[in-house]
Computed example of a mutant assay.
Amino acid sequence: MKIDDIKRVLIVGSGTMGVQIGIQSAIHGYYVNIFIRNPAKNDIVWDDIQKRTNLIVSEDVISREEADQMLKRIYTTNDPADAAKDVDLLSESIPEIVSLKREIFERFNELCPKHTIFTTNTSLLLPSRLAKSTGRPERFLALHFNTPVYVTKTADIMGHPGTAKEFLDLTIEFSRKIGMLPIVLDKEQSGYITNSLFVVLRMKALELVVNGVATPRQIDKSWMSTMNMGIGIFGIIDSIGLDVGFELLEQYVLKSGDKQAKAIYEYLKTNFIDKGHLGSKTGQGFYKYPNPEYENPDFLK
């Protein structure tokens, strides 16, 4: 298999990350199938695609004409067999639940062509925990993106002990073809590089809030001013999604008895998760969206 053999990409998971990965692939000439499990979300997904496309055009990433051609390369379907037809690379971006991911991979292994490379956009899970369920472990690895994809332009690439070098190399080349900088890990690591660093930062920031030391806005103002950045830690948490990694935090709390982690878990659950305030994708997290407070020029005054 050669890089030019990859022509059609299947996106499994039509949420924030799946849509962004699909758009990034389509911008660079790939045909994209997006599988939407729930037919009731068809209009929601297309509305998201249109909004993100308009944003990219407004920021001069691509022209309106290029966007119109890009949209013609995106196809959505509720039929898994239809979604899997003639695809060369699968990108999975569903919730961080091992059993659910295994179920999805088992299902699409039966439907996708034998040559299809399977990738996971998992933020924290190791591909070795999922490899067997794909039915093609030698063709399976992690290809992870950060949000917003068109801005961060980095792709974490991480195989497992059974990943064949041929498909690791092809995935690296594919990431370059869609305008990303591949960051290839030498061994499996939960959270890759950036996420491994950010998880620690995120927990420390939440600890400061839970312990009454500072508010999210105070922390973000301090971070943005000191680091000369346009977004703070809680703004980043909102962009990632407060639900991302929440179940793993819950598992850790149940097993460890860590009182500080439990306090953070309860704070997030009570104030955000149970209320459906999951960040920018739901319109509210630590900030309200669109037009979050930290984007206001007066935020740091």
Results as ranks from 00 to 15, higher is better:
Ala205Pro: 00
Ile3Arg: 07
Ile56Arg: 08
Leu90Gln: 02
Ser123Arg: 09
Tyr31Cys: 04
Leu170Ser: 04
Pro137Val: 15
Leu206Gly: 02
Phe286Thr: 01
Gln24Trp: 01
Gln189Asn: 06
Trp223Gln: 08
Asp274Gln: 10
Ile74Glu: 03
Ser25Pro: 02
Tyr31Asp: 13
Lys187Asp: 13
Val200Leu: 14
Asp88Val: 10
Glu103Phe: 08
Ser99Gly: 13
Leu300Ala: 11
Gln218His: 13
Thr163His: 14
Lys255Phe: 06
Asn195Asp: 03
Ala164His: 15
Lys281Ile: 12
Met227Glu: 14
Leu55Asn: 10
Pro113Ser: 13
Gly241Leu: 11
Asn228Met: 09
Thr194Tyr: 15
Thr226Asp: 09
Ser190Asp: 02
Gly162Arg: 15
Gly212Tyr: 14
Thr134Cys: 09
Ile219Ser: 01
Ser225Ala: 11
Tyr252Glu: 08
Asp79Tyr: 04
Glu207Gln: 09
Ser280Ala: 12
Thr171Met: 11
Ser58Thr: 03
Glu138Ala: 05
Pro216Gln: 05
Ile240Asn: 01
Ala155Asn: 01
Asn296Ile: 09
Tyr75Lys: 09
Arg136Cys: 03
Asn228His: 13
Met17Ala: 05
Asn33Ala: 09
Asp4Asn: 15
Leu141Cys: 07
Leu89Ser: 00
Gly179Ser: 10
Ile178Val: 15
Trp46Arg: 14
Gly22Leu: 05
Leu268Phe: 02
Pro113Gln: 13
Ile49Cys: 01
Ser133Tyr: 14
Ile236Val: 07
Lys262Pro: 06
Ile44Asn: 14
Thr226Phe: 13
Ile34Leu: 07
Glu207Gly: 00
Phe198Pro: 01
Thr53Arg: 03
His160Gln: 02
Ser256Arg: 15
Thr282Glu: 12
Ala205Val: 05
Ile11Glu: 01
Asn42Ala: 06
Gln260Ala: 11
Glu65Ala: 14
Gly15Ile: 10
Gly191Ile: 00
Met70Ser: 01
Gly257Gln: 08
Lys262Ser: 11
Asp220Phe: 11
Glu266Thr: 01
Thr122Arg: 06
Gly230Met: 07
Thr120Ile: 08
Ala67Trp: 07
Tyr75Val: 06
Pro161Lys: 07
Asn109Leu: 07
Gln189Trp: 09
Ile56Met: 00
Leu254Asp: 09
Val200Phe: 13
Phe145Glu: 02
Thr163Val: 02
Asp243Ala: 10
Asp79Pro: 00
Lys177Ile: 04
Lys301Met: 14
Ala81Arg: 11
Arg73Asp: 04
Ile97Phe: 12
Pro95Gly: 03
Glu59Tyr: 12
Gly257Thr: 04
Glu110Pro: 00
Gln284Phe: 10
Thr119Val: 10
